[in-house]
Design a binder for these strands. Structure first.
Length: 298
DNA sequence: CCGACTACCTGCCCGC
DNA sequence: TGCGGGCAGGTAGTCG
């Protein structure tokens, strides 16, 4: 499921449940996902309090009271769901834990006690196991190999036409591939790159560097692209992300941005640009599907 | 250094 | 109905 808007939606679901809660127990049902879980993962977390649930690009960052950060990536098929026990068991010393109803591919459970005394479980499910969980000291996070060369966020003030121009300068790669590169902009994935290029009427096949002037300044078309990248990400976050293949949010509800796709997964369907009349094509670039209108995207 | 390709893993959908 | 092939939102490692 997860590009930046989906991960942000997950973050917003987890934060009110996890922040301030104590991890009573971490339950791992296998030794690894894509990578082995960190050494002493459970020992580091159990008894600690969750300080905050943040996000960088497509990564969730859970700050822990002992100064560690849990780094979580959902891969292609990772999701979280929350189970909260009914109120009424908050008497000190009374530990009434309801039983988790496990599903296939439930790999991790965070057993939490909230400050109210309420019991909650945060359960990570990931059929393909492309997701992973890492841990490091908060003070070392920016130097962590995962984040060291990461590009700017497309939300907030970091992304500007000038920043994008610098990142694309002299790049010979197709624009589509360049925008998927997390060192350029961090958090874009296949869906939102296709959508941003369609909105900008830019060809995914165009060499990325052609949007930068010799002076290193952005062309007008790059200014437009930068705006559409910000817009499509903001629109998707507002919609609660995209729910493909029945992917649900932490509360089980579905995002609805997939109903707003103009290009992604619309092969053969009519292009929605005013007066175009052509249909959306599917091509493969760097081994990934690109959906675009070969008539109006130039 | 850059860009293209492959592996990783399960599930689903389609055509035969 | 069953089976094989292709495809899926991701990253990381390899190779030319």
């Amino acid at each position: 499921m997860p590009e930046l808007p989906e991960v942000e939606t997950v973050r917003r679901g987890l934060a009110p449940i996890m922040e301030g809660a104590t991890v009573e127990r971490l339950e791992l049902r296998r030794p690894d996902l894509r990578f082995p879980f960190p050494d002493q993962f459970a020992e580091f977390l159990e008894g600690q309090q969750v300080v905050s649930v943040g996000r960088r690009a497509k990564y969730l960052l859970v700050d822990i009271s002992n100064g560690q950060v849990v780094i979580m990536h959902l891969g292609m098929s990772g999701s979280f769901r929350i189970e909260e026990d009914a109120i009424g068991d908050t008497t000190p010393g009374v530990f009434h834990h309801e039983k988790t109803r496990l599903a296939a591919h439930d790999h991790v459970t965070f057993h939490l006690r909230q400050q109210s005394g309420r019991i909650a479980r945060v359960i990570y499910n990931d059929p393909r196991r492309f997701g992973f969980m890492l841990m490091c000291k908060r003070s070392e996070l920016v130097d962590h190999p995962t984040f060291k060369n990461m590009g700017v966020e497309p939300v907030g003030n970091a992304l500007t036409p000038d920043v994008l121009a610098q990142a694309l300068l002299k790049k010979g790669a197709p624009l589509k591939s360049a925008l998927l590169d997390q060192r350029v902009i961090a958090g874009l994935g296949n869906i939102y790159v296709c959508e941003a290029l369609w909105r900008s009427k830019l060809s995914p096949k165009r060499k990325a560097g052609t949007l930068v002037k010799a002076s290193g300044k952005p062309t007008d078309r790059l200014v437009t692209l930068e705006k559409h990248i910000r817009d499509v990400i903001a629109d998707a976050i507002k919609a609660g992300g995209s729910s493909l293949r029945d992917h649900a949010q932490t509360d089980g509800s579905l995002g609805y941005f997939q109903h707003s796709f103009a290009a992604y997964d619309r092969e053969g369907a009519p292009c929605r640009h005013e007066g175009c009349g052509k249909s959306i094509s599917r091509i493969v670039q760097s081994g990934r599907s690109t959906f675009y209108c070969s008539s109006c995207q130039r």
